[in-house]
């Protein structure tokens, strides 16, 4: 799984929207699209302890990404279903397409760990994984071991990559970008929030997810390499050992699910990313009835007639 990368990629998607969608895709929709897969699946992955008993998945990786399990929450098929639901319910293209892009970003980023995601579900229940780093959510290790493994492996590099992608598009974090590109795409939601927050508060809210990502990246990396004193194979270490090799770190048990060969994963993932953008682009014009202007006018007509 990815950690802060999921926070950073929201801004990366926002900054790299197709030209005709600039200023028209809801940032909240991208956020919720990116948030939904783990919102649905992750609670039970780590589980919780109550009165000395652990409640949670017995095989976290199977539950999180497998079938049977909640692996369906990490499939493009499920994302498309939710988008259909959003369109049927709200008839809002800024939210429908935004959710699709955010969801796809999450699903495609998660192919990097050793479990991967079921990219072609429901046609195939095989997982697609690049094995860039080891999936490390376990019943006993919980969040701590997972964080330590991620921030000792190429997962850390992945977070840094997305961090620099956002920094490379630094304008996405400016007040001017928020005012002229983000607010116009979702004016009703921002004005609703504006009942309680002034402009600075709204801007802080918008930047908050990026700030949260930076904080968790720094905090967990510091914890894993400065604070923690793990005992690995009977030897106490000052911090978890770094392992920036492919499939690292070496000190966690590697778990896998039935998978396709890793060699075809990257081209297929890129192909699917292109397909998502193509579909979004194609549908955009046809969803004109769900534009911000059309929705605003529909609301006025409905309320005044």
């Amino acid at each position: 799984m990815s950690w802060a990368a999921h926070q950073f990629e929201i801004y990366a998607v926002e900054a790299h929207l197709p030209k005709k969608m600039v200023g028209q895709i809801s940032w909240f929709a991208i956020f919720f699209g990116d948030f939904t897969p783990d919102f649905l699946a992750k609670f039970w992955v780590y589980g919780f302890n109550l009165n000395g008993h652990h409640y949670g998945a017995t095989k976290p990786y199977q539950w999180h990404r497998g079938w049977p399990g909640m692996g369906i929450s990490h499939t493009l098929f499920f994302g498309a279903l939710v988008c259909l639901g959003i369109w049927a319910w709200k008839h809002n293209r800024a939210w429908t397409i935004g959710f699709l892009l955010g969801f796809a970003a999450h699903v495609l980023t998660d192919v990097n760990d050793s479990i991967g995601t079921m990219l072609l579900f429901p046609f195939s229940t095989l997982n697609w994984s690049l094995h860039t780093w080891a999936y490390a959510a376990t019943v006993k290790g919980g969040k701590y071991l997972d964080a330590a493994a991620y921030y000792s492996s190429l997962g850390f590099v992945m977070d840094l990559f997305w961090f620099f992608v956002v920094l490379g598009s630094w304008r996405v974090l400016t007040r001017e970008f928020w005012r002229t590109r983000v607010v116009p795409a979702d004016p009703h939601v921002w004005s609703w929030l504006g009942r309680w927050l002034d402009e600075r508060g709204l801007l802080a809210l918008y930047r908050g997810v990026f700030f949260y990502g930076v904080c968790r990246m720094i905090a967990w990396t510091t914890w894993a390499h400065v604070v923690a004193r793990p005992v690995i194979n009977g030897v106490e270490h000052h911090g978890y050992p770094w392992d920036l090799s492919w499939t690292g770190p070496w000190w966690v048990q590697h778990v896998t699910l039935p998978q396709v060969t890793p060699w075809i994963v990257l081209p297929v993932a890129l192909l699917l990313l292109g397909a998502v953008y193509f579909v979004a682009n194609t549908l955009w014009e046809r969803m004109e009835s769900g534009s911000i202007k059309a929705i605003a006018w529909r609301n006025v007509r409905r309320k005044t007639t």
Binding site: G141, Y144, V227, V231, Y240
Partner: peptide, 16 residues
């Protein structure tokens, strides 16, 4: 292997 052991001051339950 006990590679997930936390330090004394940070109980695993916090982050969980």
């Amino acid at each position: 292997m006990n590679c997930y052991a936390a330090t004394g001051s940070l109980l695993p339950v916090c982050a969980q």
